[in-house]
C-alpha cells in the first residue's frame, strides 16, 4: 500500500513518519507542499509533525491553505485515510477536517517527554491492531497541544466515541496529573465522525525502534496497515 507523507516548510518528523509507514510493510511516498495533486493509487496520507510555515499566525493556519492541502481535503472528503501527527493534527483542525482546536499548553511550557495513552476504542481504521483499554508509552513534543472545543462540540465528540486516545497514568486511569497540557477530558487523539481522518498530538513514529526507548508506536502504524490491506 502507498502512504503519502507531506513535507511542509518546517516539517521535521516527515522522515520518521516515512519510517513508521514502511516498517509495517507499506511504501512511503514523499509529497511536497506545493504539489497540486496526489499521486494516483495513493492509499493514505500522513501529515507529519513539525512547525509548518513557522507556526506563524496560529499552528497549522497557513499550512491549511497550501496547494497540497486542497487535494488532501478532497481526498478525505472522498473517504480517503488521513492521519495527522502533532502539527499534522493542528493542520487537520485548522482545515476543518477534525473538530476543535489546539492551543497553548496550560503550563505555558513546551513539553517534550514520554506520556501514557489509553486506547479508547479499536473499531477504527487507526486502532484496529490495538486492544481497547491498553496503555501505550509514546512521546509528546509540543507547545500548543491543549485540545479545546465549545461544550456542544465536546459532547458530540464524546457521544460519537470519536476519542481514540486519552492521556492516562501508566495503569490506564484518566487523571488530571497524567494530563500534560490541559486538554479537555485528557483528549490526546480524535477521529472525525466518519472515521477516516485522525489526529493525535503524541508521536508514534518516534516510538518505533528499541533504540528510541519504546516500540509502542509500531501498533499505531500496524493498525493503519491493517486497515489499508482490508480496503
Amino acid at each position: 500500500m502507498k502512504i503519502g507523507v507531506v513535507t511542509f516548510p518546517g516539517s521535521n518528523c516527515n522522515a520518521d513518519a516515512e519510517f513508521g509507514a514502511t516498517i509495517t510493510g507499506n511504501t512511503a511516498v514523499r509529497l511536497w507542499h506545493k504539489d497540486t495533486s496526489l499521486p494516483s493509487g495513493l492509499d493514505a496520507v500522513i501529515l507529519p509533525g513539525g512547525f509548518s510555515y513557522g507556526d506563524y499566525l496560529r499552528t497549522g493556519a497557513i499550512a491549511r491553505f497550501s496547494p497540497i492541502m486542497q487535494s488532501v481535503i478532497a481526498f478525505a472528503n472522498d473517504g480517503g485515510i488521513v492521519f495527522g501527527i502533532c502539527n499534522g493534527f493542528q493542520i487537520l483542525c485548522e482545515s476543518g477536517l477534525l473538530p476543535g482546536a489546539l492551543i497553548r499548553n496550560e503550563g505555558l511550557s513546551f513539553v517534550c517527554k514520554d506520556v501514557h495513552l489509553r486506547v479508547e476504542r479499536t473499531n477504527s481504521p487507526f486502532t484496529g491492531a490495538l486492544t481497547a483499554g491498553s496503555v501505550l508509552r509514546i512521546p509528546i513534543a509540543h507547545g500548543e497541544g491543549r485540545f479545546t472545543a465549545p461544550a456542544d462540540v465536546i459532547n458530540e465528540i464524546e457521544g460519537n466515541n470519536q476519542v481514540l486516545y486519552r492521556y492516562a497514568t501508566s495503569d490506564g486511569s484518566i487523571a488530571a496529573a497524567a494530563n500534560p497540557n490541559g486538554s479537555i477530558n485528557n483528549i490526546a487523539g480524535i477521529t472525525n465522525a466518519r472515521g477516516n481522518v485522525m489526529g493525535m498530538m503524541p508521536h508514534p513514529e518516534r516510538a518505533c525502534d528499541p533504540l528510541l526507548g519504546s516500540t509502542d508506536g509500531v501498533s499505531v502504524f500496524a493498525s493503519l496497515a491493517l486497515e489499508l490491506s482490508s480496503r
Binding site: 499566525l57 485548522e94 482546536a101 465549545p150
Partner: peptide, 8 residues
C-alpha cells in the same frame, strides 16, 4: 478564513 479561528 485566515486571521482568526472561530473555534477558539
Amino acid at each position: 478564513k485566515l486571521l482568526a479561528n472561530p473555534v477558539m
